[in-house]
Design a protein around this nucleic acid. Structure first.
Lengths: 248, 248
DNA sequence: CCTTCTTAAATGTCAGACATATAAAAGTTA
DNA sequence: TAACTTTTATATGTCTGACATTTAAGAAGG
């Protein structure tokens, strides 16, 4: 942490950057306590509110946690995979919704990455992962399910598949690709026939994973990708028709 | 944006959550202006500094930007892929460094994901991507290169490969897996012989991409993964030996 | 020795003020 | 009228000082 001269605007951003660098570079260890707000204010020659704004920035990135009381203060926080999941999913969803990413592009990325996990998952999945997949398949075949609930179950199914690889780094990366895409998937309306088809594909996929057949699992995902894209195309066409109808 | 009752601590976190939900749910559109700090303070029945802390949290997550002056204020920000890259890389690097992830696990995830991109890149890469890969290979064969510079070039090479797939979602996801792993890669010391081997593998990989041979590219990445893991094992053994030596 | 009270240190919150940037409105001049 | 200048209003950026609240550690008392 050093206090160089800087442009006299957005002091809190500058200070946050400075402390962030110290954390990322390892200059500050996990659970290490930062100086108190008053001390930081003196060090950076700013007021306490400005320091606080900087600290809130870091807190928003899960880089620090704060504790009140006598021995309190701001501490470098150990970033855990579970917490990073959420941020990952939110970021991915926002990226997709704010950047006019086509369904095809998102779908391609998602299935490409998921297929990378499939062989690993097929060889390492526990009984637990398989049970989760079966349970979600069962849920998906229930008749009264809303489209959103069907999508959520779909995500849970695929997440179990990914988690089956037993690699937390993979699971983390895939969180964005699979769960972040859910809002896009929610635009699809699933007919009884398409649901039946998806359940069928999921079942074959689960069978492949059960038999530790990575190659087959990969192939099934390819089929599922194609089918999903087809569904999206249908939705788009129907929507285009509706627009034409309204224009008359 | 609604102001329910909440536990009377960390007001700024609560307010930030509230506004974040409004943005993520699409209730607030891109480039839409938020109420002024004073208005938000009145709405949430808190003071302006508290509102500001909340806004700084959102700014740290690139959800808003602020503008000074008469028509200024806080505006919902369009999250772009390029900006999300950085956060992704930082997060991934922190996750790896703070969670005792083994080199093997990180390496497996990275190459699994990269291999998912290889076929797409082989079929779609532009001349530009290929030229970047060749240029980085050339740099890697320069004798005076430091280990860090060699690693950086390695990352640039692989990034060009990933970008060749022409899918921004894939590139974004891979940023974490490839670039976020750089600190781990930097721990490896590259001998002249291992550098020569890597350059050789990179060359064959580039050849495969040039010939639009996705299958061969995938296979080369598998070879590269195995070789990289071997290098890491060597480093670990040498380090273990050094520790033993010091213990005597 | 255990319990209770006090105290100090830290974050959380507030109020009011001033500084500064910026665009629009008002005024001025050729 | 048109172009330039000045004023003004509104917003964020920052500072000062204060009080509230939480918490652990020390002091006091049984």
């Amino acid at each position: 942490m050093k206090s160089d001269k800087q442009p006299h605007s957005d002091l809190s951003a500058y200070i946050a950057d400075d402390i962030r660098n110290a954390i990322v570079s390892g200059e500050l260890d996990v659970d290490q306590r930062l100086p108190s707000e008053t001390e930081l204010a003196e060090h950076f020659e700013v007021s306490r509110p400005t320091v606080r704004e900087a600290l809130k920035r870091l807190a928003a990135q899960s880089l620090i946690r704060t504790q009140r009381g006598a021995t309190g203060g701001a501490f470098v926080r150990r970033l855990r995979f579970e917490e990073a999941y959420d941020a990952q999913v939110t970021t991915a969803a926002l990226l997709l919704s704010m950047n006019a990413v086509s369904f095809d592009v998102a779908c391609e990325a998602r299935f490409a990455l998921e297929r990378a996990c499939a062989p690993l998952s097929a060889s390492r999945r526990t009984a637990d992962h398989l049970a989760t997949m079966r349970a979600e398949i069962h849920r998906q075949s229930q008749p009264g399910l809303s489209d959103e609930a069907f999508c959520a179950s779909d995500v849970a199914f695929h997440r179990a598949l990914v988690d089956g690889a037993g690699n937390p780094v993979l699971s983390f990366q895939l969180a964005g690709a699979v769960e972040g895409m859910q809002p896009l998937m929610n635009m699809i309306t699933f007919t009884a026939r398409s649901r039946a088809r998806i359940v069928e594909l999921h079942t074959v996929l689960a069978d492949a994973v059960q038999e530790h057949d990575g190659h087959s699992a990969d192939a099934q995902l390819a089929v599922l990708e194609e089918y999903t894209r087809g569904l999206a195309v249908d939705v788009m066409e129907q929507r285009a028709k509706a627009v034409l109808q309204n224009a008359k």
